[in-house]
Design a protein around this nucleic acid. Structure first.
Length: 339
DNA sequence: CAAATCAGGCCGTCGGCACG
DNA sequence: CGTGCCGACGGCCTGATTTG
């Protein structure tokens, strides 16, 4: 993959906290007084790398020796340094960092296109991350590393934590977006009901996914997930990114149609997972809404809303199974609006 | 036109906090 | 007491803009 060779290279050369880096930098300081690494240093960078690893193999740090003992060099890693709770990515050897990067892209894609909660319970957590990491390592031809992920539960746990932090973060950030949409899209629109009753009404039977019909307050049940809060949240979080850096853009080739042939196959849809996540986050935002306007609690725990998520997922799946054309029309319309 | 510089925002990390 | 969540922050990547 292209991402490996450019900035990962540079990143690798840039910071290696507790090892000395090239002391005799022949390059004069061109820019800031900061330790801004010069752009081209490929050969010395490689040398650095080797030196570091060699130091590992010397008995400088007994710890490090232990965790990597018996594993091929490609599959080595740096253990956690004392106060930190998570494994520092930047300290890791290049192969591992590349694999983590690929794995993060993988899980991010899964959140959008497969399931936002791919690893809810513990069994699946390990199984899922193991599979992702092995695949990612293989895709980069780091077969030794792939082999280690299969066998080394300790390393798996550490890296799974790093990767999972990202999925957690995506959900959290997305819920921040939906939090900000509740007031304007659900509570400020003309109504005589008080807030509590309105919230109860919205949450009941997932009413929050339906937009209101024009000129009255009836739900338009022909437009599931057509509520502006759903649309706005998805657009805001997944599609609006500066300079094409939005998540949707990064995974733009993954959008498809339910129809494989014919003109309808060209009409892209939003994936079920993305829409379900949006609805679930809105659900959570509504549930935790406080009359004061602030959220009672920000929590968006995986297991806390998993059943809500699965409800939306099942609903969409059933639409797809029983009314494929309607499903396609709905999801395509959503895609048209946000993309 | 190429190279230097700018600026905005993403990303990794840290540590506090709440919850079971 | 471990673990997940969350705000904050600093470093740095990247497209845009300027400069010669």
């Amino acid at each position: 993959m292209c991402l490996i060779k450019t900035h990962w290279d540079k990143a690798q050369q840039s910071e290696v906290p507790h090892f000395r880096r090239t002391q005799a930098k022949s390059k004069p300081v061109v820019r800031h007084p900061h330790h801004r690494h010069t752009v081209h240093a490929t050969q010395s960078g490689d040398d650095d790398d080797d030196d570091d690893d060699d130091n590992n193999d010397n008995k400088h740090v007994a710890n490090r020796r232990d965790v990597n003992k018996g594993w091929p060099k490609e599959a080595h890693y740096e253990p956690i340094v004392s106060p930190a709770r998570t494994l520092g990515i930047k300290n890791q050897p290049f192969p591992l960092r590349a694999v983590v990067k690929a794995a993060i892209k993988h899980v991010t894609g899964d959140i959008i296109f497969d399931s936002a909660y791919p690893s809810a319970d513990l069994n699946n957590f390990n199984k899922y991350h193991r599979q992702v990491l092995v695949e990612s390592a293989r895709s980069l031809s780091y077969n030794h590393l792939a082999g280690r992920f299969k066998k080394d539960d300790e390393l798996l746990k550490l890296i799974a934590g790093v990767v999972n932090a990202r999925t957690s973060r995506i959900r959290t950030q997305f819920k921040e977006v939906t939090d900000s949409k509740i007031e304007g899209f659900y509570l400020s629109v003309g109504t005589s009901k008080d807030t509590t009753a309105r919230l109860a009404y919205l949450i009941n039977q997932m009413n929050y996914i339906y937009p209101l019909k024009q000129h009255n307050e009836d739900l338009d049940v022909n437009c599931p997930y057509g509520h502006p809060a759903v649309i706005s949240s998805i657009k805001h979080y997944f599609f609006v990114g500066d300079r094409g850096s939005s998540l949707a853009n990064k995974h733009s080739t993954c959008f498809t149609s339910s129809f494989k042939d014919g003109p309808l196959s060209l009409e892209l849809e939003l994936p079920i997972a993305m829409v379900s996540l949006a609805a679930t986050a809105i659900h959570a935002s509504l549930v935790k809404w406080d009359e004061t306007g602030s959220q009672k609690s920000k929590g968006f725990r995986a297991e806390e809303y998993q059943d809500i998520y699965e409800g939306h997922e099942a609903f969409l799946q059933s639409l797809k199974a029983e009314w494929l054309k309607f499903f396609h029309k709905t999801m395509h319309a959503l895609h048209e609006i946000v993309a």
